[in-house]
Structures are given as structure tokens and as C-alpha cells.
């Protein structure tokens, strides 16, 4: 009987907590349960959610990508630079960002599989490198139309309307202008990664690599290729997050995106606890991001001070990790 309760708690505990949270906020914070508020939550988690889905892929192969936040801000600065200073169209800006994301992922992957640098250190190094690199072209300034480029020259380019559309457009969905574009992109990426990891043979092999790399290699799986691919996915999703951030802000703000790394890693790790998976998974990651978003939105609406947010996020993360590692180890610690 006790085991059944434990099993149930591990499997559904986090989802029940999520539902409970929604009910609690709906009752005590007027306006929380409106469609607008729901969309606001989704919008606030879209970008961190997209980054978290990328990290999930690296966690699956037993890796880790600390450079995602820096990749996102690099993409943000690069898109602003190419449109405002180089005066390129939106299409070129987006393409450049995606290429940079894939390239950074490739370098991360090669550092790890070819040069045998431990994953945390390789991506930490890459994070520092990118944080520095993105400031060099503008001498550390943010990028906006009309900024001075020295010698009395002023930046003439603007963020194109097509680019801003990616970040700001809202689709009609029962209510007029309800669902923002970033939310749609988040949902599409979530479904794609969910299908890829859970239902394709490539995903299955990546999980095998994460669980026992040597054994996976001895059944003929191209271990190094899959690891590099995981980091490239992570790089590309991070650059998509950066593009959406740039399109929402409409300027190349050097200071934005500070929280992206921690928030998205937290979402991915909280995802371990969802449905008792005890391993990285796309559905859990999406739910984890949603959980944090709902918690913060609810607290904001109940007038909790902004500086308590990080504390609450941290507490949720620690609780989720206890769920995953302690409770499920007690359950599966059995066996012969």
C-alpha cells in the first residue's frame, strides 16, 4: 500500500501540484484564470522554454550546455547588428543567427568529443567567449537605430517589420489577437523535440548513449556524431530564443537575457520530476517551464515582491530534484 502511494506520488505529484497551484491562484488572485493571463504566462515562458528544450537534448546524452544563455544574447546582438548597422533584411538576420547557433553547437561538440574537454568546462569556456565576443563590435554598447558609430556617422538601419512580427504578432484564437507568435514557436519546437527524443530511433540511441556510452558504441551507434548533434540542437534552439527576444525588444539590448541560462536549466531539471520520468524529457521540460511561469505570474498578481522570485524558483528546483533523485531511487533501489 505504501509503495502504491509512493509510486503514485512520484508519477503524478508534480502535475497535481501544478493543478493545485492553478486552482489556488484562480481563487485568490482575481483575473488569474482569464485567457489573457494564461497567454501571458505562456509568453513569459516561451523563450526560456525553447532554450530548456535544447538543454534537454544535451542532458539526454549525459552532457550539459552552459553556453545557451550566451548563445541567445549573441543571437540577439547579431540580429540587431545585421539589421541596424549592416542594414540587412530580416531573412538574412534570422539565417545568420541560426547559423551562428549551429556553429557554436558544433564547436562545443567537437571540444567535448575530439578534444576530450569535460562538457561543463567546454561550454563554460564558450559562454565566457561569447559574452565577450558579442560586445566587441559595438564597444560594449547596446544597438538601436540612431546610435552613434563614431566619426559622426549614425546607424541608419531599423528593425524590419517582418522581424518584429516574429516577436510581436498575435494570432486570433477565440479571442482577438490572443496567441503571440513566440508561444506558437515554443509549442512547435516542444512537439518536434518530444517526437524526436521519444519516438525516433535517433532519440532512443541518444538516451542509450546517456545511460551507457560504451555499450551504445559497442552496438554500433555513432556516439560522437550524436553528441555533436545534441549540442548543435541546443545551439540552434538557443539562437531561436535570442531571435525572439530581439524581436520582442526591438533593440539589441546588451543587458537582457541575463536570467535565461538559469531559468532554462531549472525548467529542464524540474522536468525530470514530471510523470516520474527521472530522466530528461521534452514533455517534462515544457511542463517545468510552465510550472515556473505560473508560479511567478500568480505571485506577481498577488503582489509578492519581485525579489522573492529567484528564491521561489530555487526552492521549486530543489524540491523537484529531491522528488527525482531521492524518491525514485527508493522505488527502483530494489531489485536483486
Amino acid at each position: 500500500m505504501n509503495d502504491r502511494i509512493l509510486d503514485f506520488a512520484i508519477k503524478y505529484g508534480f502535475l497535481i501540484l501544478l493543478v493545485g497551484l492553478v486552482i489556488y491562484f484562480s481563487l485568490s488572485a482575481p483575473g488569474f484564470s482569464s485567457p489573457r493571463s494564461a497567454v501571458f504566462v505562456l509568453q513569459s515562458v516561451a523563450i526560456t522554454g525553447i532554450l530548456a528544450l535544447g538543454v534537454t537534448c544535451t542532458l539526454v546524452v549525459d552532457g550539459f550546455d552552459l553556453s545557451i544563455g550566451a548563445v541567445a544574447t549573441s543571437a540577439l546582438m547579431l540580429s540587431a547588428y545585421s539589421m541596424v548597422i549592416l542594414e540587412q533584411p530580416a531573412f538574412v538576420a534570422v539565417l545568420l543567427c541560426l547559423l551562428i547557433g549551429a556553429f557554436v553547437g558544433l564547436i562545443n561538440g567537437l571540444l567535448i568529443v575530439k578534444f576530450r574537454v569535460p562538457d561543463l568546462l567546454a561550454t563554460l569556456g564558450m559562454m565566457f567567449l561569447l559574452i565577450g565576443l558579442q560586445r566587441i563590435p559595438t564597444q560594449g554598447n547596446s544597438i538601436a537605430t540612431g546610435m552613434s558609430l563614431g566619426n559622426g556617422v549614425v546607424a541608419e538601419g531599423t528593425f524590419s517589420q517582418a522581424f518584429l512580427w516574429i516577436g510581436r504578432h498575435r494570432f486570433d484564437f477565440f479571442v482577438e489577437r490572443l496567441v503571440p507568435m513566440p508561444v506558437v514557436i515554443f509549442l512547435v519546437i516542444a512537439v518536434l523535440i518530444w517526437l524526436f527524443l521519444g519516438f525516433t530511433r535517433h532519440g532512443r540511441l541518444m538516451y542509450a548513449i546517456g545511460s551507457n556510452e560504451r555499450a551504445a558504441g559497442l552496438v554500433g551507434a555513432p556516439v560522437n556524431t550524436y553528441k555533436v548533434v545534441a549540442y548543435m540542437i541546443s545551439g540552434v534552439t538557443a539562437s531561436i530564443g535570442g531571435i525572439l527576444l530581439a524581436a520582442r525588444l526591438g533593440r539589441g539590448d546588451i543587458a537582457s537575457g541575463n536570467n535565461l541560462l538559469l531559468d532554462s536549466v531549472a525548467a529542464a531539471l524540474i522536468g525530470f520530476a514530471v510523470l516520474g520520468a527521472a530522466r530528461p524529457n521534452a514533455f517534462g521540460t515544457a511542463i517545468g517551464a510552465l510550472f515556473v511561469g505560473i508560479l511567478l505570474q500568480g505571485m506577481t498578481m498577488m503582489n509578492a515582491p519581485y525579489y522573492t522570485q529567484d528564491f521561489v524558483k530555487g526552492a521549486v528546483l530543489v524540491a523537484a530534484l529531491v522528488f527525482t533523485f531521492y524518491l525514485s531511487s527508493r522505488r527502483t533501489g530494489a531489485g536483486h
Binding site: R204, Y207, S211, V219
Partner: peptide, 25 residues
């Protein structure tokens, strides 16, 4: 042994392509 996997997934690991249609298992 892939410790995270069940019997079926451990057993079929080398031949996943024979159990998939267009990459989907």
C-alpha cells in the same frame, strides 16, 4: 547493459532501424 532501459529496448538497440519507419520507432 543500458541501465536506464527496459528489456525490450536493451535487446533491440543495435537494430532500431529495422523497427522504424522513416526514423519513427
Amino acid at each position: 547493459v543500458i541501465p536506464a532501459f527496459d528489456i525490450a529496448n536493451n535487446m533491440t538497440l543495435p537494430f532500431l532501424s529495422r523497427f522504424s519507419a522513416g526514423s519513427f520507432l
